[in-house]
């Protein structure tokens, strides 16, 4: 199981909580201090994207965040409930212009993640879409 697992309602106000938790767990796992800003930003982007997807598809399911300590890497997975499960034709935007803005913001979010994270996989699992990112950890992690 994940070291720390988080599920939150797809609301923008909870994205900050996810960022803070991810950065705290990453720090404790031994992720270098200089990279923590990147972790915070990448998690924020991935969670914002997931929140946007859930809202556009009117899903009540929570956004899933898994923080996994491995021997040499710190892995973060952010799962949405959309992925391949909901076909594009089920998408009913309320207003065309807003949909274009949303799509542009989602694309910008992915651009930021791609620019920040060297080890990045964008795929899906049985629950929906999944963004998997990882960072190296120091040999001697910070003790509690």
């Amino acid at each position: 199981m994940a070291t720390v697992e988080l599920r939150f309602s797809a609301l923008p106000e909870h994205v900050r909580t996810a960022r803070l938790v991810a950065a705290a767990v990453a720090r404790r796992a031994g992720v270098d201090e200089s990279v923590l800003d990147e972790v915070r930003l990448a998690v924020g982007e991935a969670c914002s994207r997931a929140v946007g997807l859930h809202r556009r598809h009117q899903l009540d399911e929570p956004v899933r965040v898994k923080l996994i300590e491995q021997e040499k890497r710190f892995v973060i997975e952010i799962g949405d409930g959309v992925g391949g499960k909901h076909a594009a034709d089920q998408y009913h935007p309320v207003d065309g212009a807003a949909a274009v803005d949303d799509a542009a913001e989602a694309a910008m979010g992915l651009a930021v993640i791609s620019g920040l994270v060297d080890d990045l996989e964008i795929g899906s699992d049985e629950d929906g879409g999944l963004i998997r990112m990882s960072w190296p950890v120091a040999v001697h992690p910070v003790l509690p």
């Binding site: 960022r19 915070r40 930003l41 924020g44 982007e45 914002s48 803005d101 542009a104 913001e105 910008m108 979010g109 651009a111 930021v112």
Partner: peptide, 9 residues
Amino acid sequence: DFLDSTGLG
């Protein structure tokens, strides 16, 4: 203190 892509947008 923090800026993400939504802010850039």
